[in-house]
Lab assay of single mutants.
Amino acid sequence: SSQSQGISSSSTSTMPNSSQSSHSSSGTLSSLETVSTQELYSIPEDQEPEDQEPEEPTPAPWARLWALQDGFANLECVNDNYWFGRDKSCEYCFDEPLLKRTDKYRTYSKKHFRIFREVGPKNSYIAYIEDHSGNGTFVNTELVGKGKRRPLNNNSEIALSLSRNKVFVFFDLTVDDQSVYPKALRDEYIMSKTLGSGACGEVKLAFERKTCKKVAIKIISKRKFAIGSAREADPALNVETEIEILKKLNHPCIIKIKNFFDAEDYYIVLELMEGGELFDKVVGNKRLKEATCKLYFYQMLLAVQYLHENGIIHRDLKPENVLLSSQEEDCLIKITDFGHSKILGETSLMRTLCGTPTYLAPEVLVSVGTAGYNRAVDCWSLGVILFICLSGYPPFSEHRTQVSLKDQITSGKYNFIPEVWAEVSEKALDLVKKLLVVDPKARFTTEEALRHPWLQDEDMKRKFQDLLSEENESTALPQVLAQPSTSRKRPREGEAEGAETTKRPAVCAAVL
């Protein structure tokens, strides 16, 4: 046999249950609850290399294929790409003598399909299967379609040439079993990697079954959420508030809700932002270029202005709740996480202390139980975000031990490091100062900020419009641009040419 590394010779191994799959997660993409704000000051410096380099560890398999027929071997997927077919160049070659004697062998292509993985959001991997055969590759009886790919989820059954000719079961060793999710959700989405997690739940990458488009699904544990919100009269209202707010909003710089499922837990389906959180971008770069800050901040102002015009105060604006559309420097941003939002009543007064301390406005800290506050709290938070983006460190921090965090904020005395700000323009610093004003009545509004000289930049605004146009074009394009080929190089076993392929839609398939 010419099988590559990772293939075992026996096809009769006992199949494990899916609970053996491991679970991976990374930083929070968007969480309903406010958790302790991640610290920006503690960015690790590059460490000196050791005298002796450690040995390379043996790579762990990321997936496993269990053979369902004699003549096929099990495969431990270690590499990122595997070709399957009769050709000797394939990493998994159909060359077992037992297999060659079967009637089905002649229906398999020289290069029938490939399984591979690509880097997705949060640097996690996504597994795909890609059909290159004349007679078809099927996943859970659905045709992939020649020249098309679809994501592979845990426990997928792979069939060759005929939908009933099941050859492998695919085990993704990095994700959960699909069966743990409600059927209504599974009918519409293929669940994938964990993108982030918080005290009350997690955010998962998923794929729409009909279109193969990526989405983010925010899962909120009702049990954990009820415990964490025990002081509230009705904890469920917080989730329902977020859903109702998101459904009503329609702005290019605000995250869109696509679906909602109320089962044992809450499942909020949101558009996916491939670039992750602004927080991670700031930490990764230490600070952002001023031109990049301007492009992002302009969009934040437009989003918050839209919220305020619609009578909504976000109340928890922070870099973790600003998501980026891509890994590119120039990209769209979207505001997310409306769990603490407040729809303005007639009095415009709110007395609930919520939000993240580092970003809270002075009037929030001094008015607990005594007075109210209004939309100006969001403008203060925007000032803190702009400060961080321009400088790479927070204006107020618990680690300045000589003054408490509350006193720093209520006095408006931010930590100004001259040598850092020497590289920032006077106009940018002036806008920061106009937003970090203790008196909410004297603080800049979103309208005033948008009129500030720093943002009178036609090149930046043109760039934003171009990015918007690109997004609109990409969302308007159909996901499947061509029909699967019906040509046949070899006959199917026991049926006429093209008899099955043309009847089945290529579900969740995307043209390369």
Rank of each mutant, 00 (worst) to 15 (best):
residue 244 E to M: 14
residue 244 E to R: 15
residue 245 I to R: 01
residue 250 N to T: 05
residue 250 N to A: 04
residue 254 I to H: 05
residue 255 I to G: 08
residue 256 K to H: 05
residue 257 I to N: 05
residue 257 I to A: 07
residue 263 A to Y: 04
residue 264 E to Y: 03
residue 264 E to H: 08
residue 265 D to T: 15
residue 265 D to E: 09
residue 267 Y to P: 05
residue 269 V to C: 07
residue 270 L to Q: 04
residue 270 L to C: 04
residue 273 M to K: 15
residue 283 V to P: 01
residue 285 N to G: 09
residue 285 N to V: 08
residue 286 K to C: 09
residue 286 K to H: 06
residue 287 R to F: 13
residue 288 L to N: 08
residue 289 K to R: 08
residue 290 E to V: 09
residue 290 E to D: 12
residue 291 A to I: 05
residue 292 T to D: 10
residue 292 T to N: 08
residue 295 L to G: 05
residue 295 L to S: 07
residue 296 Y to E: 03
residue 299 Q to T: 05
residue 300 M to G: 01
residue 300 M to C: 12
residue 300 M to E: 01
residue 301 L to R: 14
residue 302 L to Q: 10
residue 304 V to P: 06
residue 307 L to D: 00
residue 310 N to I: 15
residue 311 G to E: 02
residue 312 I to N: 07
residue 314 H to M: 00
residue 314 H to D: 04
residue 314 H to S: 02
residue 319 P to N: 03
residue 319 P to H: 01
residue 320 E to T: 05
residue 321 N to T: 03
residue 322 V to T: 10
residue 323 L to H: 03
residue 324 L to E: 06
residue 325 S to F: 14
residue 327 Q to R: 14
residue 329 E to G: 11
residue 330 D to N: 10
residue 331 C to A: 00
residue 336 T to M: 14
residue 338 F to H: 00
residue 341 S to H: 01
residue 342 K to F: 03
residue 343 I to T: 15
residue 347 T to G: 05
residue 349 L to R: 08
residue 349 L to M: 12
residue 350 M to E: 03
residue 350 M to V: 06
residue 350 M to F: 12
residue 351 R to Y: 03
residue 354 C to Y: 02
residue 356 T to S: 03
residue 359 Y to Q: 01
residue 360 L to S: 07
residue 361 A to R: 02
residue 364 V to A: 10
residue 364 V to K: 13
residue 364 V to N: 00
residue 364 V to L: 08
residue 366 V to G: 07
residue 366 V to H: 04
residue 368 V to L: 10
residue 369 G to A: 11
residue 369 G to W: 15
residue 371 A to P: 09
residue 372 G to W: 14
residue 372 G to H: 03
residue 373 Y to I: 02
residue 375 R to I: 09
residue 375 R to M: 14
residue 376 A to L: 05
residue 376 A to R: 10
residue 379 C to D: 13
residue 381 S to L: 00
residue 381 S to Y: 01
residue 381 S to F: 00
residue 382 L to D: 02
residue 383 G to M: 00
residue 383 G to N: 01
residue 386 L to R: 01
residue 390 L to G: 07
residue 393 Y to H: 08
residue 395 P to K: 01
residue 397 S to D: 10
residue 400 R to P: 07
residue 408 Q to C: 00
residue 408 Q to Y: 08
residue 412 G to E: 08
residue 413 K to I: 13
residue 414 Y to S: 04
residue 415 N to Q: 00
residue 416 F to N: 06
residue 416 F to M: 03
residue 417 I to K: 05
residue 418 P to T: 11
residue 419 E to L: 07
residue 424 V to Y: 14
residue 425 S to D: 07
residue 428 A to G: 11
residue 429 L to V: 09
residue 430 D to A: 07
residue 431 L to C: 13
residue 436 L to M: 06
residue 440 P to C: 08
residue 441 K to S: 15
residue 442 A to V: 09
residue 445 T to K: 08
residue 446 T to G: 05
residue 447 E to W: 08
residue 450 L to S: 04
residue 453 P to C: 14
residue 455 L to I: 10
residue 457 D to G: 05
residue 457 D to R: 04
residue 458 E to R: 05
residue 459 D to E: 11
residue 463 K to I: 14
residue 467 L to R: 10
residue 467 L to V: 00
residue 469 S to F: 13
residue 471 E to H: 05
residue 473 E to Q: 13
residue 479 Q to S: 07
residue 482 A to V: 06
residue 486 T to W: 14
residue 487 S to M: 00
residue 487 S to R: 14
residue 491 P to A: 15
residue 493 E to G: 08
residue 493 E to M: 12
residue 496 A to L: 05
residue 498 G to C: 09
residue 498 G to T: 07
residue 500 E to D: 11
residue 503 K to R: 11
residue 503 K to V: 02
residue 506 A to G: 10
residue 506 A to T: 06
residue 506 A to L: 00
residue 508 C to S: 13
residue 508 C to I: 09
residue 508 C to A: 04
residue 509 A to L: 14
residue 509 A to S: 06
residue 512 L to E: 13
